[in-house]
């Protein structure tokens, strides 16, 4: 069984079967297939090798392959689970699944924590938070005095660092997010529920009918 199209895509490095990925994520098989359309577009925008390189990710996010950004770097690093400098299809789908509207809030909380734990210490430290605020200000061409930045960071820490040890641990992060649910709004992409409408071409070739 299988058509020429299917045989062709199986040769791409890092390709995984949509049925397998759908079983492990919030996506249906059709949605994974539609995501493959998006993945193909992103992974061939500069280097046609079926892998998303950092420059291709930046090009998709900023319309400029040279635009560096702390947060885009962090997202890329988290998507690049194998830490080999590129995002493979399976990594792309599993990571994007965190942003699916149906994914458990606990997964989103954990992903956001890892995103903001810049140095992988298991804590969001004060210096890391300040570094992120400064990066955001620079990105936005906003100018705030160091005193104001310190005050913003201090205030956030006074609310989030419940045990006052100068760093935010996972439990404190969970409590802080529970009190400030809007912090997770960028962890959900409504588009992902309509992905088969946005990228419908693969659906014509779909071998498997979704059961739900």
């Amino acid at each position: 069984m299988g058509c020429l199209f299917t045989k062709h895509i199986k040769q791409i490095p890092g390709y995984e079967e949509p049925t397998v990925l759908a079983g492990e994520t919030s996506f249906t098989v059709s949605e994974v297939e539609a995501l493959y359309e998006l993945f193909k577009k992103l992974s061939s925008s500069i280097i046609v090798d079926g892998l998303i390189h950092k420059e291709e990710f930046q090009l998709a996010l900023f319309k400029n392959s040279n635009t560096r950004n702390l947060f885009a770097d962090r997202i890329f690093d988290l998507f690049d689970v194998k830490r080999n400098g590129v995002i493979e299809f399976g990594e792309f789908v599993r990571s994007l699944s965190v942003f699916h509207p149906n994914t458990a809030i606990s997964e989103k909380i954990e992903f956001a924590f890892r995103l903001y734990d810049l140095r992988h210490t298991g804590f969001i430290e004060r210096e890391e938070l300040k570094e992120m605020v400064l990066a955001l200000l620079k990105e936005s061409d906003l100018c705030l005095s160091d005193d104001v930045v310190e005050t913003i960071v201090d205030k956030t820490f006074s609310e989030a660092d419940l045990n006052g040890d100068g760093k935010i641990d996972r439990e404190e992060w969970k409590e802080f997010v529970a009190r400030n649910p809007s912090l997770l709004k960028n962890m959900t992409l409504p588009y992902l529920k309509d992905i088969t409408i946005a990228f419908p071409s693969f659906v014509l070739y779909s071998e498997v009918e979704d059961s739900d």
Partner: peptide, 25 residues
């Protein structure tokens, strides 16, 4: 008043975290 901003709220507005852009044609 900027001093009342939650630092994480501020950060979450980063364009680098707006993955919706990936879906733009």
């Amino acid at each position: 008043r900027p001093v009342m901003m939650n630092a994480f709220e501020l950060i979450s507005t980063s364009q680098g975290l707006n993955l919706g852009t990936l879906f733009e044609k």
